[in-house]
């Protein structure tokens, strides 16, 4: 696998949220706005890249039996760094994401990449892998956050485009809306992939999927 293939896989072919269905809790929990989705995605990307690098560095020193606990400690250390960093420099985002920041530790994507990729590859590919999966995750969260924000509060990244006092579909910023919006997004992406597969692989880049409602 070349570096560029390694880098692009996280966005479409192996997208953590849309294809592998990993890390669902933060995906559904924090995406009430596009900004929160992006913030969570980037925080996760940081942890993923750093933990992949460290795991790739220490993989030969760690006995096989205590592999998983070691990885968990490495991940948890970086999560603690993110937690303190956000609290100090972006307190607004820290408040918004709340419980989901410490819960980055149990995001299955991170341990999954450490176990299935970084523990078998050298530092550079592991770093690219972390970047790819992390940014793919951030992209998915931002997408879902944008859809929910447009439908639920009539704005994008906090910029409102509906007249003041207009009625929006409030359900989309509440918990049920998260499930429903993600359900339609995944259905839309399934449809796009099915279409892309039929007449020979066309362009690798899929167009921005629209919410199917």
């Amino acid at each position: 696998m070349t570096h560029s293939e390694n880098f692009t896989k996280g966005f479409f072919k192996e997208n953590a949220v849309f294809v592998l269905l990993l890390g669902m809790c933060p995906t559904l929990g924090v995406t009430t706005t596009a900004f929160n989705g992006l913030g969570m995605g980037l925080a996760t990307t940081f942890v993923l890249v750093m933990s992949n690098i460290v795991v790739a560095l220490v993989k030969d020193l760690v006995p096989d039996k205590v592999r998983i606990p070691t990885f968990v400690v490495i991940i948890a250390s970086f999560v603690a760094i993110v937690e303190m960093g956000l609290q100090a420099y972006i307190p607004f985002l820290y408040e918004q994401l709340g419980l989901f920041i410490p819960l980055i530790v149990v995001n299955c994507i991170i341990l999954g990449r450490a176990e299935s990729f970084a523990s078998k590859n050298s530092v550079l590919p592991s770093m690219i892998d972390g970047l790819s999966m992390g940014l793919g995750f951030a992209m998915a969260l931002t997408m879902l956050g944008t859809v929910r924000e447009i439908l639920g509060s009539g704005s994008v990244f906090g910029l409102s485009f509906v007249p003041q006092g207009a009625t929006t579909i409030l359900i989309f910023v509440m918990p049920p809306g998260a499930f429903i919006a993600l359900g339609y997004l995944i259905a839309g992406i399934n449809a796009l992939q099915a279409r892309a597969r039929k007449p020979k692989p066309v362009a690798a880049k899929a167009p921005e999927p629209l919410p199917a409602n």
């Binding site: 509440m174 918990p175 049920p176 499930f179 359900g183 839309g188 399934n190 449809a191």
Partner: peptide
């Protein structure tokens, strides 16, 4: 066909969540 599996399950979960609201 496109809704089979995960998408329909998520929508079902959304409806259940609405009931709990």
């Amino acid at each position: 066909a496109r809704m089979k599996g995960v998408p329909i399950s998520l929508i079902l979960a959304g409806l259940l969540s609405m009931a709990f609201m």
